Computed example of a mutant assay.
Amino acid sequence: MNEQAIMHEPAVTPSSVGIRYGVITAFISIIFSLILYVTGLHTNKGLSYASMIIPIIGIVLAYNYFKKENGGFMSYGQGLGTGTIVTAVSGVLSGLFTYIYLKFVDPNVLEQIRNSSIEEMENKGMSDEQIEQAVSMTEKFTTPEMMLVMGLIGAVILGFFLSLIIAAIMKRSRPEFE
C-alpha cells in the first residue's frame, strides 16, 4: 500500500465512535431519567421533551470527535452511520434501565403516569367514556416491556432522522484531489 492510501485510512470508525458516544449519551440519559423519577418530575411533559436534547448533544460530540481524529473530515455517510449508532446504543441502554426501573425498582411510576394522563384529559374536557377508552388503549402500551420495545424503535428512528440533519450540517468531505 502506498503512503497516500495510508493517510486516508480513518483513525477511528463510525462504529467505534458511535458505540463510545452511545454509552456516554446513555449514561447521561439514565442520570437525567433517574433524577426525574426520584423527584417525581417524570410526569412533567416539558422536562420529558427536554430530554430530547441529550441525543442531539451526543451526536454532535461524536461528530466533533470523529472529525478531530480524522484530520477534520467526516463524510455524510460516516456522520449518518455514527449518529445512528450513537442513538441505537443509547436507546438500548436507556431502554434497559427504564425497563428495570419500572419493573423492579418503582412500578408505581406507571400508575403516576396513568393518573397524570387522566387528569390532563379531564382538564381538556373529555367525557368519562372518552377517558376510559383512551386509558384502555394506552395501558396496552405502558407496560415495562412495551415501553422497552417502543423506546428502542423510537430511539433508532429518531436517531436516524436527527443524524440525517446533523450530518448534513456538520459533514466536511475530504477534497477529491490532495
Rank of each mutant, 00 (worst) to 15 (best):
G18I: 01
I100G: 06
S33H: 12
E139Q: 14
A5G: 04
M146S: 07
T82L: 03
M146H: 01
Y21D: 00
N2H: 11
M52R: 08
G22Q: 06
Y76D: 15
S51G: 15
S75C: 03
F32D: 07
I166V: 12
A168C: 12
F161G: 11
I31N: 02
Y49T: 08
G18L: 00
I85S: 05
M52T: 13
K103C: 15
G77M: 02
S15H: 11
V92D: 06
S173E: 10
V23M: 04
P144I: 03
E9W: 06
N44P: 06
M74K: 06
G91V: 07
E145N: 03
S33G: 08
I113M: 11
E132Q: 15
S116Y: 09
Y101S: 05
V105L: 12
I153C: 13
P55W: 02
A11E: 10
Y65A: 12
S16M: 02
T138E: 08
Y37H: 13
A5P: 05
T87P: 09
F27A: 12
V105A: 13
G77L: 10
T142Q: 14
T82V: 00
V109P: 04
G72K: 04
M170Y: 01
I131C: 08
E139D: 03
F73I: 02
S127L: 01
G79A: 14
G159C: 01
F27K: 03
K124N: 15
T39F: 06
F32K: 02
P107G: 04
L93A: 10
